[in-house]
Computed example of a mutant assay.
Amino acid sequence: MRNIFITGAAAGIGRAVAERFLAEGWTVGAYDIVPVSWSGGERLLTGLLDVRSAASWDAALAEFSAVVGRIDVVDNNAGVIVDGPLASSDPAAVERLLDVNCLGVTLGARAAHPYLQGGGTLVNMSSASAIHGQPQIAAYSASKAYVSNLTEALGLEWRKDRIRVVAVWPLWTRTALADVEVASVRRLGVRITPEQVADVVWRAATAEGRWARGKVHYGVSALDKALYLGRSLAPDRVARLLTRVLAG
């Protein structure tokens, strides 16, 4: 029986991912900084995890591994957002964002490494906001670009350990994270469901074949895939103009 360990699983995308993998017959470790209060049957194991703490990571993974043995997939899903002009942002809120979105993902990768060696997969939750830096969510956008680059670096660094590292890049999804005053929310809408993101996490985690397993970055909707492709082809000035139109 295969298994997955998920952070930020109390609600939103994390919960949808947990429910998708449970439906596929996997054992799921659903962890969060708040108690996971929803029911998922005997194959659902829940616990507390502060992703900002290396000790908390070590304890949570050891607890889950004690039940399942080697871990097949770790989903670095937990994340927070701060919206509004950076110059007037609360420094404590910005610090927490960077701690959760950057430090938390990094500590999670580090702690997961020994459990994933020999064929496991690390899934990191990035965002379409990482395609080009977004005004009004500058720190969040930058933190997701960090996640993308970390994914690419670890994919190369851990190749010899047979650990696959991938990133999922959704646009605004119908969760509390999208409840922000940002121009791109108004112009693009919030059209993606947590279940759609969970479907992509499922495809990323269970990819088979050399070609499919070589994929690193996964879009969710046709629009975020088009934006990702366009950014890779467009000169910086064009990408900046497009971002101004959508998010400025």
Rank of each mutant, 00 (worst) to 15 (best):
D161G: 11
G14N: 07
W172D: 06
P170V: 12
V73M: 00
S126I: 05
V190G: 02
V74W: 12
R187A: 07
A59L: 15
S127C: 02
D90P: 06
S127L: 06
A167R: 07
C102V: 10
G69Y: 00
G230N: 05
L188A: 11
V180Q: 13
H113Y: 15
A204Y: 03
G108H: 03
L150G: 06
Q117M: 12
G189I: 09
A239V: 01
A23L: 00
P114S: 08
V185D: 01
K144Y: 01
D50V: 10
L107Q: 01
G12Y: 08
L45H: 15
S56A: 09
V166I: 15
A55G: 10
Q134I: 13
V190D: 09
A239F: 01
L97Q: 02
R43F: 12
L98M: 05
G41E: 06
D50M: 09
A54P: 11
V190C: 02
E24M: 07
W169H: 14
W202F: 13
A23F: 06
P194M: 04
A66H: 11
Q196H: 03
R186E: 10
A130W: 06
V36W: 09
K215C: 05
I81V: 12
L103H: 05
W26E: 03
L233C: 09
V166S: 12
G120E: 06
A247K: 01
M125F: 08
G155P: 12
W169A: 14
S89W: 04
R187F: 09
R210K: 13
A204M: 08
A222F: 06
A66S: 11
I81E: 04
V180S: 12
R15W: 08
G14A: 03
L98W: 01
N77Q: 09
L246I: 04
H217A: 13
R244W: 11
K225E: 14
V168T: 01
I13N: 07
S56V: 04
I163A: 11
A93T: 07
R110M: 15
R231S: 14
P85F: 05
V245N: 09
I13K: 08
A142H: 00
G79H: 01
A207M: 05
Q134Y: 12
V74G: 10
Y218C: 06
V238T: 03
D236L: 12
R210W: 15
D236I: 13
S148V: 14
R244F: 04
F5L: 11
W38E: 07
C102H: 02
V28D: 06
G40Y: 04
L150R: 02
P235E: 05
F64S: 10
A111W: 10
V82K: 03
L150W: 05
E63F: 13
W202Y: 14
L107I: 01
G25Q: 02
H217G: 08
V73W: 01
A167M: 02
A247Q: 03
P85T: 07
N101I: 02
R70C: 06
G108D: 06
A9Y: 07
V28S: 06
S221F: 10
R174Q: 14
V74D: 10
L177G: 10
F5R: 07
A62V: 03
P85C: 01
G133T: 05
G79S: 09
G8P: 00
S53N: 09
G155W: 15
L242Y: 08
E24P: 03
